[in-house]
Amino acid sequence: MNLKKMIIINFALVAVLIAGELKDKTDAHLRKFFGEECVIDSKKYIIPQELKSKIENLTQQRFYTDFVFLYFVKNNDKINSYAILDNVIGKVQPITFLVIYDSNFAISDFQIIKYREEHGGEVQNESWRNQFIGKRANSEFTINENIDGITGATISVKSLIKGINKTSLLIRSIVGNE
């Protein structure tokens, strides 16, 4: 391989990675969950200021930024699931997570797309994540009551619970007009 080719490949590789490791992982997960034949629409959703403040007040946690990524999953031409990709802050790094909702806004899956901290990685364990399945919002998940705490992951656990509360309220507001 000549030098020019190698340089071009180097830069091209960078360009592909910039295109979004997070989005690729999210897409891959949604396809794994819903099957290859499903149709996925996604958009960057900018949260209206008023709604943002309202949800932040209710959950006592700020949004990581003023947008989230919103996914609509269609099977047989009908939208039957939604998903939100958002970040919460752990000890200091963001935790990127995906929550999938059924048409009644109950959680059908919860995934950590990227974890960047030294401690607290246990939140990625399936046994912990699965506790959220079937739940809706707020009162249905409370640490130590129906969601287990994790020794050494207190901050990540608390932050994610609030984060899922936020996305649960958000999806109902956006899609359910609540």
Binding site: M6, N10, F11, L13, V14, L17, I18, G20, K23, P94
Partner: peptide
């Protein structure tokens, strides 16, 4: 260009990372 490749982590964060204290 190799150096650039090594540093892709800095660039691949897209717009979903904010430097935080």
């Amino acid at each position: 260009s190799f150096l650039f490749l090594l540093n892709i982590n800095l660039f691949s964060q897209d717009d979903f990372f904010i430097s935080t204290s």
